[in-house]
Nucleic acid binder design. Structure first.
Length: 566
RNA sequence: CGGGGCGUAGCUCAGCUUGGUAGAGCGCUUGCUUCGGGAGCAAGAGGUCGCAGGUUCGAAUCCUGUCGCCCCGACCA
């Protein structure tokens, strides 16, 4: 491709409304342009990258035995009402009415559509297993679109849905997809990690996420330093601590007139934060309140709390007035003493002896408190987010917290959708069988942003070779002045093109500075400079994007091709 | 949705407090010079100051409303 014939729109200045580096670079390098909040046009250069990711995904899905389909982005609301998700999914579901006032949704995923197809056309166990996928624009009425295409209202997603006669076959396909995903992200060329996940509103039993590791990631992951254990912090279990030490201290009140948080109290008393206990008062399932006790240095894991049988889901914090009525003290001075409301204690809080907590009296805390003596022996549960330094749940190593960008998610759904939508097949004995389902997603457009997030330097993008928009950029110096340069560059361009190398030829006649700056910014992996200097000794200059130094190579097409693969 | 901020040239922004004929840098066009890491000189194009009302002799500037965008919190590929 000749750049003079192309639509390359780069900018030197960083657009004001771009926060993360991938968004900035995608705008500066002319990959995308914003149409509205969370809506982006893919320009020619960006679309080439998107297509490359898409192609890798398609090839590996095909290789794994899945079959490509294409379903309508519009879905009649009845299908979503049938699965129950029309009401459950919430405001994030993009809905509209047509001229006849019929309800539709713009699909954020397509379990319903595919299950509907399956119940019509999949009649026999002989047709199973079946794994159908598509690569298509998905829609979400995001609360807050941000970070460019990373969290957009529209995005390109690969979604796959599989059907099986039993759970064992579902598990087999799940592993198959897991391996396919591993190959996909390896081929794309990003550093990633597979983590245990919560299945969220999609539902189902087992699920794992694929994360590209990057500091700008929106998700916190807990990873072991000694094994391959890794989990989204939402889903990471915490290990139960050892047995509780014996009580040694007397329980006594201490004045804490203005100290409401555990941090403030611990500082005032000069005790470690880990010896304090805080109460979080929430609505109980079936009415009333329940208090969740956590160690002062630990954070509540909302998803874990919502799964607890005593806690109402979605989690709702009690109001100040209710708390005062139940405890006789305002928030900030609450403790598990005095049987005010039922207490569920996180295992780590339950394992403390001689701890500090609120005295249920404004302006006072209580120290030397012990379960079973000063406070009723609590019900224990895993309620907290794991913290860096915790032992890994698999017993090997220590957890540390890192950030990741979720680019893939695989689920074993079970029969949630097939049951709700009455999809069934006849088994060998002629009896009805409700298939087990799996679903598998990849955020294709998000992968592009995630790759940039991981692969960039001060000058711009440094594309992994597999998804670079072009493989080589050809930069002639003084092409308009030197017949030798023009001749050599034109020939090299023609020969590389003929050899099937994706080459971008900068024939715009720019000065070297801007030309190199653009080449760096758009991140083409290999750069060949053709100039009078080198040609004088029969050489081209070769530089790998991201390499410190350029080197000279013989000025022949064969040597250039050899350098590309070196 | 709640909290905070911003809408002035293609981009980054000044001007607004104290109303008086719309600015800079970068980018773009043309010419000459220059040509190995974002050149110099000269000439030029480009803005209903987000939109709608209001106050005023006069509004980018003051007032009201409205729309859009960005950032912080609850969601997800």
């Amino acid at each position: 491709m000749r750049l003079s014939q192309y639509f390359l729109v780069t900018t030197k200045e960083t657009p004001a409304d771009a926060e993360v580096v991938s968004h900035q670079l995608m705008l500066r390098a002319g990959l995308i342009r914003k149409l509205g909040a969370g809506l982006y046009t893919w320009l020619p250069l960006g679309l080439r990258v998107l297509r490359k990711v898409e192609t890798i995904v398609r090839e590996e899905m095909d290789r794994a035995g899945a079959l490509e389909v294409l379903v309508p982005p519009q879905v009649p609301a009845e299908l979503w009402q049938e699965s129950g998700r029309f009401d459950q999914y919430g405001p994030e579901l993009l809905r509209f009415k047509d001229r006849h006032q019929r309800d539709f949704v713009l699909g954020p995923t397509h379990e319903e559509t595919i299950t509907d197809m399956a119940r019509r056309d999949v009649r026999s166990y002989r047709q199973l297993p079946l794994n159908l996928y598509q690569i298509q624009t998905k829609f979400r009425d995001e609360i807050r679109p941000r970070f460019g295409v990373m969290r957009a209202r529209e995005f390109l997603m690969k979604d796959a849905y599989s059907f099986h006669v039993d759970a064992a076959d579902l598990a087999r396909e799940y592993r198959n997809m897991r391996e396919a995903y591993r190959r996909i992200f390896t081929r794309v060329g990003v550093r990633f990690r597979i983590v245990k996940a919560d299945s969220g509103p999609i539902g189902g039993d087992r699920s794992e996420e694929f994360h590209v590791l990057a500091n700008s990631g929106e998700d916190l992951l807990a990873v072991s330093d000694a094994s391959d254990y890794a989990a989204n912090i939402e889903a990471a279990e915490s290990l139960r601590p050892g047995p509780r030490p014996a009580a040694a201290a007397q329980s006594e009140p201490v004045a804490t007139p203005t100290q409401k948080t555990c941090e403030e109290v611990a500082a005032l008393l000069g005790v470690p934060l880990q010896t304090t206990v805080k109460l979080i008062v929430v609505r109980a399932r079936g009415g009333g309140l329940v208090a969740l006790a956590l160690r002062g240095d630990h954070a509540l894991n909302v998803l874990k709390a919502e799964k607890h049988p005593r806690v109402a889901a979605p989690l709702e914090l009690a109001g100040d007035a209710e708390i005062e009525a139940a405890f006789g003290a305002p928030p900030g001075f609450l403790g598990p003493i005095g049987d005010k409301v039922p207490v569920v204690a996180d295992h780590a809080a339950a394992a403390l002896a001689d701890f500090v907590c609120g005295a249920n009296r404004a302006g006072y805390h209580q120290r030397g408190v012990n379960w079973g003596r000063d406070a009723r022996e609590p019900e224990g549960a895993d309620l907290r987010c794991v913290a860096g330094g915790d032992p890994s749940p698999d017993g090997q190593g220590t957890l540390s917290l890192v950030r990741g960008i979720e680019v893939g998610h695989i689920f074993q759904l079970g029969r949630k959708y097939s049951e709700a939508m009455h999809a069934s097949v006849l088994d060998e004995s002629g009896k009805e069988l409700t298939p087990e389902m799996g679903c598998y997603g990849i955020g294709v457009s998000r992968v592009v942003a995630a790759a940039i997030e991981q692969c960039n330097d001060a000058a711009g993008i440094v594309w992994p070779e597999a998804i670079a928009p072009f493989r080589v950029i050809l930069c002639p110096i003084g092409r308009d002045k030197s017949a030798a340069v023009k001749q050599a560059a034109d020939t090299l361009y023609a020969e590389l093109s003929a050899a099937g190398v994706e080459v971008l030829y900068d024939d715009r006649g720019l000065r070297p500075g801007p030309m190199f700056a653009d080449a760096d910014l758009i991140g083409i992996p290999h750069r060949i400079v053709v100039g009078d200097k080198g040609l004088g000794s029969g050489q081209f200059e070769y530089k790998r994007r991201g390499a410190a130094e350029a080197r000279m190579i013989p000025a022949t097409t064969a040597d250039v091709i050899a350098a590309l693969s070196a």
